[in-house]
Design a protein around this nucleic acid. Structure first.
Lengths: 187, 187
DNA sequence: CGCGCGATTGAGTAATTTCAAATCTAGTGG
DNA sequence: CCACTAGATTTGAAATTACTCAATCGCGCG
């Protein structure tokens, strides 16, 4: 469990045993059942989450009660409502498990303390944040330039494993089309 | 000019005079004319840019030669094709001036050196990156949940100054609708 | 066997695009 | 002051795309 986190971090920065022990001391571990909410819209967002195993969706529910999926979080992903997390405000989105999921939890104080005390971790988070930003920008580009069918194929190419693990309804909510439209595209 | 950059950075982290002089030594300054490209698709992306004054657009040209605007960069914004910048690959997007624009330029080595030698700057970039990520996610949410008219109104509320400074065609390319549709929405 | 959920199909409707034409606007030169 | 031009914006009409709502299908499970 902890080894998984360490391997993940060490893809970006190398840590001594003591350093990793220090890092680990900032996390708690938690397990959630399939369909369970880690947090819901309107709640305080206490943690950022590192997914050890399982699968999450970060979703927004609009005024007509339609769900829109902002992102899926697979193994090794970091997820939260980062706006609410960093500004210590209430969540505008919800984080829900699509499978039984194990996560490491990092509070904002933990995050800030890690960054302040161990520059390698600040560097790690900076690299992660840059990658997250770039990924989001590519998603924007995909939404701007591609129609539903092309977006479907891009997702299929990028994360084929999702197609075994989540329902078509979920994929449609991520792609930004109705499930009926998605159904009609698959030919 | 340099004072502007300093004030901008010091909104996040405090710097001594020597520290700021060190920071500044990593930047060069450049000025571009209206409509000039800072870099184009296919070129190497040498710098990230801090906009002192003026206005930029980061744009993607699709296979049908349609332009899509990934973001506008107003005064005090940082802009580049960050994927190409960080991975030292060729640009997939172009960066063009909508007005005469003055920027500070930071090379990747400069960025990395600053981060390594001055933790405050790594902290600064981390905060900026987090905000950039959050902003991108909100744009995704806007594209997923809102129709063209709602997106138009959101933009109007968020950056009213854009409406004096850029053509409707540019706004349409940002919002993800044809300029004809945008024109019909304005009632 | 029958229930229940997700996926698919059909039909009508709404939103957006495309292409073409008309209109407006700012700047230029006579 | 006026005419002219280039570019941007608006309008019109037809075609396309996606949505909604309703009905049906398919399949795993008790």
């Amino acid at each position: 469990m902890a080894e998984k986190l360490r391997t993940h971090i060490e893809k970006k920065v190398q840590l001594s045993d003591e350093e990793f022990a220090f890092v680990l001391s900032h996390f708690t571990i938690a397990e959630f059942k399939k369909n369970q909410f880690i947090f819901e819209k309107g709640e305080k967002v206490t943690y950022a989450y590192y997914v050890v195993s399982g699968l999450l969706k970060l979703l927004y529910t609009d005024s007509a009660a339609n769900q829109h999926i902002v992102s899926f979080a697979l193994e090794d992903w970091w997820e939260s409502d980062f706006y609410a997390y960093f500004t210590q405000t209430r969540a505008t989105m919800s984080l829900q498990c699509l499978e039984k999921t194990t996560v490491f939890c990092l509070s904002l104080e933990g995050y800030q303390n890690l960054c302040a005390r161990l520059q390698k971790m600040e560097s790690f988070f900076l690299q992660k944040s840059n990658l997250g930003f770039i990924g989001s920008q590519q998603r924007i580009l995909s939404l701007l330039t591609s129609n539903a069918k092309e977006r479907y194929e891009q997702l299929l190419g990028q994360y084929p494993s999702l197609f075994q693990r989540v329902s078509k309804t979920q994929l449609a909510a991520y792609l930004g089309v109705s499930r009926e439209t998605l159904s009609r595209l698959q030919k």
